[in-house]
Design a protein around this nucleic acid. Structure first.
Ligand code: FES
Ligand code: FES
Lengths: 140, 140
DNA sequence: TAATACTTGACTATTTTAGTCGGGTATATA
DNA sequence: TATATACCCGACTAAAATAGTCAAGTATTA
């Protein structure tokens, strides 16, 4: 049960961005330097964030990325979804009738994992980007 | 963010066991058949459960494993710990002063992931084996 | 004395993760 | 208008983690 870097970096980078005035393009290079995340990896991540309407890009020199919405309206769940990192606790396909073992019945623990799935998603659903900034005034 | 089979199977197997009268040894072979989990893999898992005092073994023919405690007193968190599958949401070492990026300060998102860590562990802490059986009377 | 069932460490194929690489295109500003 | 900056995009890859398997046991009971 662990979080991957893609999700972690995505949130980290967006949190970094949201400290700057909105409409002020922030370059990936700067984020890369400030947060010590590989620039090339960031590019990959931001492409997805862009496709999912979380940021928009400003090309050319002195360009960068801009949050497409107010940090208050960007839920962590959206960010996760954007970088296609879903929570997966069940062993089976959720929608299918079949169980994780190939049987035609869901296994003994299915309900438990399903509950856990909902529980975790609930956390992401109830947090937005601006929540991150409020905790403390940090400068790193 | 996904759950691995080791944890899933551990809980599944223990849930299977706890449907039988306590002190009645359940063989891994039977669990393997009922739950469609590889016998050899189960052996590996149960070795850890045994070392962590969750089950005890009864050797010899008509032997098997027995829950060491009442299902009510076996928390999911213990099971996870036993198969050393910890929840890891932060990118850094929790106890260290250093951040996930090697810097000497924790990163902007550290508190968030720490909160998530606690949140998830809380789920496991508040569930025990007997909770699983109560949901429905299932027979698989 | 068979058969059953636990014991243990080492080994391995497969999958996932965490990136990198190369070769673009668009735009601002000097 | 040259040039540097910065986004764009698909393909590739090394390394780590996962999900097991294998071999060679030992203990107990019917
Ligand atoms: S987890 Fe869904 S059937 Fe087992
Ligand atoms: S997650 Fe702990 S410092 Fe970044």
């Amino acid at each position: 049960m662990k979080l991957n870097t893609k999700s972690r970096y995505a949130v980290m980078a967006l949190a970094d961005m949201s400290k700057f005035p909105i409409n002020n393009p922030v370059s990936l290079r700067d984020i890369s330097l400030r947060q010590s995340i590989s620039l090339l990896y960031l590019e990959q991540i931001f492409l997805k964030l862009k496709k999912n309407e979380i940021v928009k890009s400003v090309r050319g020199s002195s360009g960068g990325y801009v949050l497409k919405r107010d940090p208050k309206n960007i839920k962590l769940s959206e960010i996760f979804q954007a970088v296609d990192q879903k929570v997966k606790t069940v062993g089976c396909k959720k929608d299918s009738k079949k169980g994780c073992n190939g049987k035609s019945v869901k296994c003994i623990t299915h309900e438990l994992w399903d509950e856990l799935d909902i529980y975790i998603n609930n956390f992401f659903e109830n947090k937005n980007l601006s929540d991150l900034l409020m905790t403390k005034e940090r400068k790193n």
